[in-house]
Each structure stands twice: as C-alpha cells, then as structure tokens.
C-alpha cells in the first residue's frame, strides 16, 4: 500500500490556517499598495505601512502575490504542487521581512553622521522598536510552512 503524506491527516486544519493567513496577507498587500498610491503615511499602534515606492509599492505588490500564492495552494495541501505554492508564498514573505530586518541591522550599528563610530546602546535598541512593517508580523506565521514540509515527508 502506498504511504500517505503526513499532511493528509489534518488537512482541514491546514486549510483553515492558510486561508486565514492568505486573506490577512492579501489584505496587508492591498493596504500597502493603497497607502503607497495615496502617498499618506499610515501608522496604527505597532503597525506601520510603508508609503515609499520601493518598500510600499514593490514590497506591497510582493505581499499581495504572497497572499495569492497562499490562497491558490491551500486546497489539497498534501499534493506536492499545492504545497509548493504555499511554500513560495512563505518565501516571498521571508524575502520582504528578511530585507526589512537586514535594513534594521545595518541601520542600528553605525553611529550616524554626527555620532561616533558606533551607535549608542539606546540608539541600537531603538532601531528595533516598533512600529514594524506588515511583513515582520506575517513572518512568524509564515514559518508554519516548515512544519508542513516536515509533515509532508513524514509518511503515515
């Protein structure tokens, strides 16, 4: 008998999870694009939607694509091509969030134009303080896909 993928066992659960994540990602992407088009800064609590052409425009478009990847792949996730779409959705989020975090790191270390060689401890920590861009919030939820890959290869 052919062994089944471990993902088949709780397929409905994964469906609901990626449906919610996909819709949230899609909403963030659309908001990002709207904010960029209108050109107005949008910040609410710990969330900041970038409005510049690069991060808000292209970045928003990529978040939107990530949402579409999630939604198109969530049905029959135990099928390798469907799982691949969901993985690609997560990769897009990792690219945006990864570059955001990398930019934070590179900004946090130097002392700035008028400061010393290196940033002060307060300045360093301040760089990592909220508000954050949507991709940073989506990042932990997108990591669930690693568990799905593990489950996929764990045959039952």
């Amino acid at each position: 008998m052919t062994k089944r993928s471990g993902l088949e066992k709780n397929n409905d659960l994964y469906f609901i999870y990626f449906l919610i994540l996909g819709l949230a990602t899609l909403a963030f992407g659309i908001t990002d694009l709207i904010v960029t088009i209108t050109g107005s800064e949008y910040s609410i609590g710990v969330l900041n939607i970038p409005n510049d052409g690069f991060r808000g425009g292209w970045g928003g478009l990529i978040i939107l694509f990530a949402g579409i990847f999630y939604l198109s792949g969530l049905k029959d996730l135990y099928e390798i091509h469907q799982l691949a779409k969901v993985v690609m959705g997560s990769i897009l989020i990792w690219i945006i969030a990864g570059t955001d975090i990398f930019a934070m790191i590179t900004e946090s270390i130097p002392g700035g134009e008028d400061g010393g060689w290196f940033n002060t401890a307060q300045g360093f920590l301040g760089t990592y303080a909220p508000p954050y861009a949507p991709a940073i919030f989506l990042l932990p939820f997108s990591l669930v896909v690693i568990f799905c890959i593990h489950k996929y290869y764990k045959k039952i």
């Binding site: 690069f54 292209w58 970045g59 478009l61 990529i62 694509f65 579409i68 990847f69 690609m88 990769i91 897009l92 690219i95 945006i96 990864g98 570059t99 990398f102 930019a103 590179t106 900004e107 270390i109 130097p110 134009e113 060689w117």
Partner: peptide, 25 residues
C-alpha cells in the same frame, strides 16, 4: 511574481549593505 521578489531582495540587500559600509563607516 517570484522574479519580482528575488530582484526586490537583491536590490534591497544591495542598498542596505552598501549604505552600511559607505555611509556608516
């Protein structure tokens, strides 16, 4: 969409890294 994301990542890291060394130090 994937290619757009890859190129976005490419240029974003390019800008952050070059800025870190040039403007920072």
């Amino acid at each position: 969409p994937f290619a757009i994301a890859v190129l976005y990542g490419f240029w974003s890291i390019f800008g952050s890294f070059a800025g870190f060394f040039t403007d920072g130090f």
